[in-house]
Simulated assay, not measured.
Amino acid sequence: MDLNPVNAERKRPALTSISAGVVPGLVLVAMIASVAYSARGLSGLTLFSPMILAVVAGMIYSNVLGLPAHAKAGIAFSQKRLLRFAIVLLGFQLTFGQVAGIGLGGVGIVAATLGATFLFTVALGKLIGVEAKLAQLIAAGTSICGASAIVATNIVTDARDEDVTYAVAAITLFGTVAMLGFPLLAPVFGLDQHAFGLWAGASIHEVAQVIGAGFQNGTLAGETATVAKLTRVAMLAPMVIALGLMARRGSSDTSGARPPLPWFVVAFVAVVALNSLIAIPVQVHAAIALAAQVMLTMGLAAMGLQADISQLRSRGLRPLMLAFSAFLFIAVFSLTLVKLV
C-alpha cells in the first residue's frame, strides 16, 4: 500500500480525469440504447431493430436538446473503440465457409462499386464547383466506410476542419437514410437475403449502418452484408495510399503520411478463423452475440448523437447535392451489378 500522500494525490486526479472524460458519455449512450430497446416493444416499431432506433433516438436527442460537452469523450469512445470491438465480436457468428458465400462475383461487385463511386463523386464535385479536398472526403466516405474513411483520407488531403465535419455530417445523414430505407426496398426489387446483403454491404456508408440494415432483413442478409462491407473497409489502406501518392505529385515533400491499418478488419478475420477451426459452445456463442448487439446499439446511438444537422448548412447546398448524388449513384450502380451478377 502506498501511504505517500503526494503519490495518492497524483493518482486521484488521474482517476478523476478518466471518469470525468469517458463515463458521462458512456452513460448517455447507454441511456439512448436503453430507450431504443424499450421503444422496440411499442406498437409499430417492432419492425425496426434496436440498432436503427438507437441512431434515430441519438440524432433527435443531440439536435433537439444539444450535446453536453462533458459527454463528448465517452460518445467518441463508443463510436470508435466500442463499435469496432463489437464488429470484431461479430466474427464469432461467421466461418470461412460463410465468407466464401459472396464469391468472387461479390468481391468484384464491391471493388467495382468502390472505384466507380469514388471517381464519379470527384468528377461531379469538380463539375459543380465543390472544392477538391471536400469532394475527396465525400467520395471516400461514400465509397469506402463513412466517417472512418473521411478521417483517414484527411491525413493525406489535409482539408479544413469544417470540411471534415461537413463530410461526416452528410455521410451520416445519407447513410442513415440508406439504413432505414434499403430494408423496405428489398421486396420491391425482388432481392433475396443474399442479394440484399450484398447490395447493403456494397453501398451503405458506415459499417454499423450496414449491419443495422442487413440484419433487419434476416441473419443471412446481415452476415453477407457484414462480409461485403468489411471487404470494402479492407480497401481503405490502398485507397489512402493512392490518394497520398496523388497529393505528393509535384510536391517537394517526400515524407508522406502513413495510412492507418484497419486493425479491426484484421481482428475480425482472426476471429472468423478461430470460429472456423474451434467448436465454441452454443451458450458462449449466444452470450457473445448478445454482447455484440448491445455494443453495436451503443455505437449507433453514439453515431446518432454526433450527427449535427446544422453542419449541413455551413458549407452551402452544392456539397450536400454532391453527397446526395454520390449516395444515389452507389445505390443504383451496386444494385445494377447485384441484379446482373
Rank of each mutant, 00 (worst) to 15 (best):
S78A: 15
L104A: 15
R315L: 14
A228F: 02
D308V: 10
A291I: 13
N63K: 10
A225Y: 12
G21D: 06
T16Y: 12
L220V: 15
L317R: 01
E9P: 02
D163T: 00
P13I: 13
A237R: 00
A202W: 06
E9F: 00
T121R: 00
L274A: 11
I75L: 03
A86M: 11
L337D: 10
T224F: 06
R81N: 07
G316C: 03
A73S: 15
R313E: 01
E162I: 11
A20F: 06
K126C: 02
L53P: 04
A208G: 07
A149P: 09
A237H: 02
V27W: 02
I75N: 11
A139K: 00
H194P: 02
Y37N: 08
V130K: 08
R40A: 12
R40T: 01
S43I: 03
F215A: 07
A302L: 11
M246A: 14
V284A: 15
L134G: 00
I150S: 01
V122I: 12
V271L: 04
L53Y: 09
V233A: 12
F92L: 11
T226Y: 09
L89F: 14
P238L: 01
A200D: 01
F264V: 14
A326I: 01
G316I: 01
A139L: 09
L42K: 05
A237Y: 02
S148P: 02
A291R: 03
G141N: 09
A234D: 01
V338F: 08
S143G: 01
N7E: 12
V22S: 05
A123Q: 14
I102E: 13
S148K: 07
L180H: 04
P50K: 11
I87E: 11
M246C: 13
T226W: 08
G316H: 00
A225F: 08
G201H: 03
E206S: 09
D2E: 13
P68E: 02
G103F: 12
K339F: 05
T224L: 05
A30K: 01
A279W: 06
A30T: 10
R81M: 10
V23Q: 06
A302P: 14
A289S: 15
A100T: 12
T113Y: 04
A221E: 10
F85P: 03
Q98T: 14
A186K: 13
P238N: 09
A292V: 03
I241M: 15
R160Q: 12
L15R: 14
V168S: 01
V266L: 14
L236V: 07
A159V: 02
A257T: 10
I60A: 15
T117E: 09
D192F: 12
G106E: 12
K80Q: 05
L94F: 10
A149S: 10
T157I: 05
A247L: 05
N217M: 15
S251T: 13
M59W: 05
I150W: 02
V64F: 14
V284T: 15
T219E: 15
A323V: 05
H205G: 05
A140I: 04
